[in-house]
């Protein structure tokens, strides 16, 4: 699996390859380009130059159903979650399956929720099973973040992209959520996660990529790094 990037306005000549089974942490100060990099990979941000290969395919060369099939294999926990909010939790989680559902089934599911058992199972993994039929905008910030994680769990993607997926969670839930998101990587997929907390990055990832002002300034196995090495990325004295 290759991800190669050219030049976007906030990313400057980034060339990065994530291999199968790898768990990669993106580190760097705010504005370094972590979210943009994730956006380029999942297709929400078009690169202005260069090329991207995702799961062995070139998204720019695909159209229609073929592109949708590729995108269904990439799951994202967005930094701002991007939940509609005015829906019940069951629908927000089921939205993870929209990549494989035809439009009619998607519409019918809003009337009669489909695959509720799977949704409840995914929510149980993040400790929210009892909120499955609540309105999403009635949940707290941390609960909403877990809904977004559950969406990725029912999607069962090969590549997981996560942008600060645990920013609003307590330490116990943080460990659990990162473990869940690393699941596909353990089965031959991959995880690419933007993480602010150096300790977390070192504990849950095999490799750390440091970004500064849109450039890759660090790319090393987690085992060879210390928390102090990463602190340097944020401009704090090591």
């Amino acid at each position: 699996m290759t991800v190669r990037l050219g030049t976007a306005t906030v990313l400057d000549g980034v060339d990065l390859t994530v291999g199968a089974g790898e768990r990669v942490a993106l580190a760097g100060a705010s504005g370094a380009g972590k979210s943009t990099l994730l956006g380029v990979v999942n297709g929400t941000v078009p690169p202005s130059a260069g090329s991207v290969r995702v799961l062995g395919a070139d998204p720019a060369a695909l159209r229609g159903a073929a592109l949708r099939r590729l995108r269904a294999r990439v799951g994202t926990v967005h930094q701002h979650l991007e939940l509609a909010g005015a829906l019940r939790v069951v629908h927000e989680v089921n939205a993870g399956r929209l990549g494989s559902w035809p439009a009619l089934r998607a519409a019918w599911s809003l009337v009669r929720p489909q695959g509720v058992a799977d949704v409840v199972a995914a929510l149980a993994q993040v400790g929210l099973a009892d909120r499955v039929f609540d309105r999403t905008d009635a949940l707290s910030g941390g609960q909403r973040q877990r809904v977004a994680v559950a969406r990725v769990l029912v999607q069962q993607p090969d590549l997981v992209l996560a942008d600060e997926p645990a920013s609003a969670l307590d330490p116990v839930l943080t460990e659990r959520v990162l473990g869940l998101l690393a699941g596909p990587a353990g089965r031959g997929g991959a995880l690419l996660a933007a993480l602010h907390d150096p300790a977390l990055a070192l504990r849950h990832c095999d490799r750390v990529v440091g970004l500064a002002a849109g450039r890759v300034v660090l790319d090393a196995p987690a085992a060879a790094l210390t928390v102090a090495d990463l602190a340097g990325l944020y401009g704090t004295p090591a």
Binding site: N42, G43, T44, L67, R68, R69, L70, R71, A72, R73, V74, G75, T76, H78, E82, L83, A84, G85, L87, H91, E92, A95, G96, L98, G99, S100, W101, P102, A103, A106, A107, L110, Q155, P157
Partner: peptide, 18 residues
Amino acid sequence: PRAALGALGAHPVAGWLY
């Protein structure tokens, strides 16, 4: 939200609905 659904491969109609 709509862009996020597009990114995970949702049909445009489904993206609009959700």
